[in-house]
Simulated scan of single mutants.
Amino acid sequence: MIEIINEIDKQMTKLIECPRDAMQGLHAFIPTEIKAEYINLLLQVGFDTLDFGSFVSPKAIPQLRDTAEVLDKLDLKENGTKLLAIVANNKGITEAIKHPQINYLGFPFSVSETFQQKNTNSGIEKSLLTVEELINQCSKTNKEAVIYLSMGFGNPYGDEWSDEIVAHWASELTKRGAKILSLADTTGVSNPEKINYLFPHLVKTFPNVEFGVHLHSNPTNWLEKIEASWNSGCRRFDSALRGFGGCPMAEDGLTGNIATESLISFLEAKGEVLGLDMEKWNEAMRYSGRVFG
């Protein structure tokens, strides 16, 4: 285990900022121009990846129906930040791969059959076929697939959950070519004990996969989750400015994303050199009031 964690320590910490996750549950439509200006500010901060939008049914997520229009307004010249967009079915994949600016396509794969139906209107077995198509299309279009193991730390829907079940589905995904898996704490039920066991266990079992965390929390328990993830060897973290958002399909208003500013403070305290433009970050923080009110 020490060897595995030391090997991960050599990797650069990757920060994924998620304005898409923060905006998707808002009811009042944010004008396209404001979304684009906000994301352009975040692009100048220097994050590894920006999870900026999704190609899903506007009936499901009406807030993000203008993702393609936002993308056309982004200034990507001389910018090292990669773009990630979420897809939920083959139609979304077909639309997303048309855009060469996008580097990553993400798919939420739930270990809970109930939540997979709620989130993508398809069951687990059909979603495996979608993952296969996603990975196939990404290989043809110079993109990478990011598969989120949704409900990765438990679920409130009564479906059976265990570490073994999570590992089983991780195995099925890697057999189909998945190279990046993000453990998603969709309803905020993770705790240090679960993270400390499950994350290193998966890293050891699937050494050729890059694992990350997409954690949700309330304001009182974010630190213990990030600390456990860091100590378990995680170097790929999703977060959102001010901790806005969460998953609108989860019907849980108590948990939001991990706040990016909190994550930055934590990593700097660990001695990480993040290389972020904090002046632009503060500008994005100020501008966020126009987005979130």
Rank of each mutant, 00 (worst) to 15 (best):
T49L: 05
L128V: 12
M285L: 14
S139V: 04
F153L: 06
E272T: 06
S190W: 00
G177A: 12
Q44Y: 03
L183F: 01
R290E: 15
E78H: 11
N218W: 00
P62K: 02
L254S: 07
T141D: 08
F199Y: 05
A60N: 02
T174M: 13
T255Y: 08
T255E: 10
T255C: 09
L263V: 08
F244P: 11
G246T: 08
I61N: 01
S54K: 01
F55N: 03
I2R: 14
G80F: 00
T49K: 04
I4F: 03
I16K: 00
N221W: 02
W169C: 08
K179P: 04
Y197Q: 04
H168T: 14
P31H: 14
H99R: 10
G271Q: 13
K73H: 09
M1Y: 02
M151L: 12
V203W: 03
G92E: 00
L267E: 03
I135T: 08
S112N: 07
C234T: 06
P19I: 01
R65W: 07
T255Q: 10
E160V: 15
L105P: 05
D277H: 13
I5K: 05
A178Y: 04
E125S: 12
E251Q: 14
K204N: 12
V273P: 01
N208C: 11
C18R: 00
R65H: 08
D163L: 01
S182Q: 07
A184K: 01
N191K: 07
I39W: 03
K73R: 08
T187P: 02
Q24P: 13
H99W: 12
D66Y: 15
Y148Q: 09
L76I: 14
V70N: 00
G212L: 05
N79S: 13
K98S: 10
R290T: 13
N218H: 04
K225H: 06
E132H: 08
G123F: 15
A269H: 09
K143F: 02
